[in-house]
């Protein structure tokens, strides 16, 4: 195990699973990305450049303050709305939170490839009753899968 990635005695992908356990309704998907960790993680870590490319609702993202791992962000959505976010970013771990959403990524090397996990969680409102909740979960998983597709493409051959 890469010690640089293992913070507080827990692997980042395992950490994401634990975080999701405390966020009822959070959608999580993970995937083996066909690219080495050193190609995948920069796509996640360069939030300003890449987040608008894989996140369909985001038009722009600016880092307004940075103190070590802690970041303040300003997110501009495609519908014109803006929202501040706080984030924690380090090797293999990216957690962003606004008043309305939580977004997280965790990654670790897997042979010559990368295991990448992605979480999205809406903070607003009580969980919807079934069957609406299942429909929302399926939609959230489909959205995350699409984002992971894009991240894989960005990490492998579409960087510019």
């Amino acid at each position: 195990m890469n010690h640089q990635l293992e913070q507080a005695g827990i692997d980042p992908v395992d950490r994401l699973t634990v975080l999701a356990a405390a966020l009822p309704g959070a959608a999580v998907r993970q995937r083996r990305i066909a690219a080495p960790y050193d190609a995948v993680w920069p796509v996640i870590a360069d939030l300003e450049h890449f987040a608008p490319r894989y996140e369909p609702g985001v038009a722009r993202m600016h880092v307004t303050e940075r103190h070590g791992e802690r970041l303040h962000l300003l997110v501009g959505y495609t519908n014109g709305r803006e929202e501040p976010m706080e984030a924690r970013l380090r090797a293999g771990w990216c957690l962003m939170q606004s008043a309305t959403v939580v977004v997280a990524f965790a990654a670790r090397p897997l042979g010559g490839q990368t295991l990448l996990a992605h979480l999205e969680h809406l903070r607003t409102g009580a969980p919807a009753p079934e069957p609406t909740r299942s429909r929302h979960r399926r939609a959230a998983h489909a959205k995350i899968d699409q984002e992971l597709d894009t991240i894989e493409r960005l990490a492998t051959h579409d960087r510019d």
């Binding site: 950490r15 939170q97 969680h121």
Partner: peptide
Amino acid sequence: GDALALDQLL
């Protein structure tokens, strides 16, 4: 459900 507080607690 503050994710950053959960992260710190972890």
